[in-house]
Design a protein around this nucleic acid. Structure first.
Length: 426
DNA sequence: TCTGGGGTCCTAGGACCC
DNA sequence: TCTGGGGTCCTAGGACCC
């Protein structure tokens, strides 16, 4: 058995924890750069504010219904997420943190418990410890746990918990779930299936296996197996190291000067380097891109990208910055208004393993003194920033001028910044 | 004025190896 | 008359997730 615990309207719920007056109002949280809705309270959904819809198109609606609007505060959401996951870890030793607001729990060997009551206890405890409301679905496969979770959310009578215990439970659940709402069936496959008169999860589960394998490939075939109660997706108890690490942002105002892009790219590169070190990985390739708005008139569009192969895999900010600088210089074209840029680290090599030191053909020194020093400098940098706040110590090229994000309605970093708390009190 | 930011996996086809 | 059999690696594109 698997349980899927999913935080309700997570980002909105985080804002509400620290501002209970929001509980009676429609609330939305915007994406970076205050662009789209990425979280909506139930009231906001009812008004018709769509997930991922651009906020500027709904300004009237927002005003008319006095919707509380927030810029994304990922420092807050990330910290609240860690608190929720911490609580959940007390309920099973087998946990997979699936996303910032979702967690699978393995319930093998929990047969002596009443799982329904167990789930209700989890809900109460998470709520008490963190203030965050969650819904819980339980089923014999991850996909069925997902489906159960959806039921728990959609059906208030269930009070946040749905348990697919018997064949009959599963049959009833699948009958009431549209095929596009099944985990692993996206827009394209849903349209394909609708054309062939397959509308519910139950319809899909009954299709001939080879046909599904042919048209939806192995991923689709696995979904079908899972819907039929045969588990194909195991819990990932250890998160595998990331294969790529990306930091990118849209700009509040288009950036036209090379210098502005340079500062932004240096900032993104520093963030990537930090993420690499946190993962214990080194990158052997670095890609930089900068582009105009996809909504700009066709003639004013440009998508520039360059990838640099590093002579040795690295997670040293200084090394990566030098590469990023070269890439940007190569891709930059005068005369465009750049609306977004980013840095992608790839070709990962585990940091600290023998490969990472051994493989450079031209490395003259058997004891890589330079690398040793670089590691120590980066460690000091990270320690200082961990203690005194991100960005306290940084490279001189990592400048915040010449580019900025729109972020007009940011709530305080209630749980991660003393300064913000002091301001709130004042 | 104005449209996010991360990720993963799978497949097909080409280039290449012996 | 009529072109082997077994691989790997890389890339692009398509699908999906939150």
């Amino acid at each position: 058995m698997f349980a899927l615990v999913d935080c309700n309207n997570f980002y909105v719920s985080c804002e509400r924890v620290f501002n209970p007056a929001l509980c009676e109002r429609p609330v939305v949280v915007l994406s970076n750069n205050d662009g789209c809705f990425i979280a909506r309270s139930e009231e906001a959904k009812a008004i018709g504010l769509g997930m991922g819809a651009p906020a500027f198109k709904s300004e009237q609606l927002l005003r008319r219904h006095k919707v509380a609007v927030y810029s994304a505060n990922f420092a807050l959401y990330g910290d609240m997420s860690a608190r929720v996951m911490n609580t959940l870890a007390g309920y099973s030793s087998d946990i997979e943190i699936y996303s910032i607001d979702e967690c699978f729990l393995g319930l093998d060997g929990f047969g002596r418990f009443d799982l329904d009551e167990y789930a209700r206890d989890i809900r109460r405890t998470v709520r008490r410890n963190t203030g965050i409301p969650v819904s819980i679905g339980i089923g014999p496969t991850k996909t069925l746990a997902k489906a159960a979770n959806r039921m728990a959310k959609k059906n208030p009578a269930l009070q946040g918990v749905a348990f697919l215990r018997s064949e009959a439970d599963m049959h009833a659940a699948l009958k009431n779930i549209a095929v596009e709402d099944v985990w692993g069936i996206g827009r394209r496959y849903a349209a394909f299936l609708h054309q062939r008169d397959i509308h519910t999860a139950l319809d899909f589960s009954r299709l001939p296996g080879p046909w599904v394998r042919k048209h939806l490939h192995v991923t689709g075939a696995r979904v079908q197996e899972e819907l039929n109660g045969r588990s194909c997706l195991a819990l990932e108890l250890v998160r595998p190291a990331k294969q790529t690490i990306c930091t990118s942002r849209s700009f509040g105002d288009a950036v036209t000067e090379y210098e502005g892009l340079q500062h932004a790219v240096a900032h993104f590169t520093s963030k990537c380097a930090f993420k690499l070190r946190r993962e214990g990985s080194k990158a052997s390739m670095l890609t930089v891109f900068a582009c105009t708005s996809p909504f700009a008139p066709k003639t004013g569009r440009y998508w520039g990208t360059r990838t640099i192969a590093l002579p040795e895999a690295s997670n040293d900010t200084i090394v990566l910055l030098a590469a990023a600088e070269r890439a940007l210089a190569a891709l930059f074209r005068e005369g465009y208004g750049y609306k977004k840029a980013g840095v992608i680290a790839g070709g990962m090599v585990p940091g600290g393993s023998p490969e990472q030191t051994a493989l450079s053909l031209f490395q003259e020194d058997p004891v890589p003194e330079k690398q040793l020093r670089s590691g120590m400098v980066m460690e000091a940098l990270d320690r200082l920033n961990a203690r005194y706040g991100p960005g306290t110590l940084r490279l001189a090229s990592d400048l915040r001028s010449g580019w900025k994000q729109r972020q007009g309605r940011l709530s305080p970093h209630y749980t991660t910044s003393w300064n913000d708390i002091i301001e709130v009190r004042a």
